[in-house]
Design a protein around this nucleic acid. Structure first.
Lengths: 103, 103
DNA sequence: GTAATAGTTCCAAGAAAGTCGAACTGTGAT
DNA sequence: ATCACAGTTCGACTTTCTTGGAACTATTAC
C-alpha cells in the first residue's frame, strides 16, 4: 500500500528555464501536441494521443513528462482519467511572445 | 591539392525547420552566442569564443556548425579569419517574434 | 618558400534522449 | 470484492548529442 499519489510535480513558473522549454518544443511530436492543446483547450491524455494513434502509450507518456517537467503543460487527475492543460498564461508571462511564435 | 572550399553550406530560409531551430537554441552555450551576435553584430569566431574562453576550439566549432545548419547564423571566410553573422532578418521573416522572445 | 594563425574536420568515448513492452497503481463500474 | 480502464513507471536497448584532442587546410606575414 505505497500510497503513490497521482498528483505529479509541476515546476513553478519562476523556475521555468528557457533552454529547457526550447528543448521540450524541439521535438516534432511534442510541438504538435502543444499546438493541439493551444487550439483545442484541455484534453484527456487519450484525446491528446489521437494525433499520433500509432505511438505506444509509454512513449507518449514520456513526451508528456518532458513537457510537464519543462513547465509547459499541467497534467492533473480527473476521475479515472487525466486532464492535460497548456500553461498558456504563465508561459506568456514568463516568455512573452514565445508561444505565439511557435504556434 | 584537394581544393577544399572554405565556403560552408547554409540552408535556404525556406528550408529552415522550426524544431531544428528550437533545438539549436536549446543549448545554453549556443543561446548565449546568439544573444551576443544579436547585441554586438557580426564577429569573428575568435571574438565569439571570448564568451566562453575555456571551451576548446573544436567544441565551439561544433556548436557553430549546429547553429549554421539550423539556419540561424552565417559563417563566411573573411581573410584569414571567419565572420559569424546572425541571420536576423531571414529568421524574423520566417518565424516572426521567435528571436525577439528568446533574446 | 617557410612559419604562424584561424578554424574546421575527424575520430573515439561518455552522456543523454528516444522507444517500447511489461509491470504497476488508482479510479469507477458491476 | 472484482474487473476493466487510463495512465504512469520501470528496465533494457538503440540512437543521437556532446566533448575534446589531434590532424588538416587556407590564408597572411616574413
Amino acid at each position: 500500500m505505497t500510497a503513490t499519489s497521482r498528483i505529479l510535480a509541476h515546476p513553478d513558473v519562476a523556475d521555468v528555464d528557457l533552454t529547457t522549454v526550447l528543448f521540450a518544443l524541439s521535438d516534432p511530436a511534442r510541438l504538435e501536441l502543444i499546438r493541439q492543446l493551444a487550439a483545442q483547450g484541455p484534453q484527456t491524455v487519450a484525446q491528446c494521443q489521437i494525433v499520433d494513434p500509432d505511438v505506444p502509450k509509454s512513449t507518449f507518456s514520456h513526451h508528456l513528462k518532458t513537457l510537464r517537467e519543462a513547465g509547459l503543460v499541467r497534467n492533473e487527475p480527473a476521475g479515472r482519467q487525466r486532464t492535460v492543460t497548456l500553461r498558456r498564461a504563465e508561459i506568456d508571462a514568463r516568455f512573452p511572445g514565445l508561444l505565439d511564435s511557435v504556434l
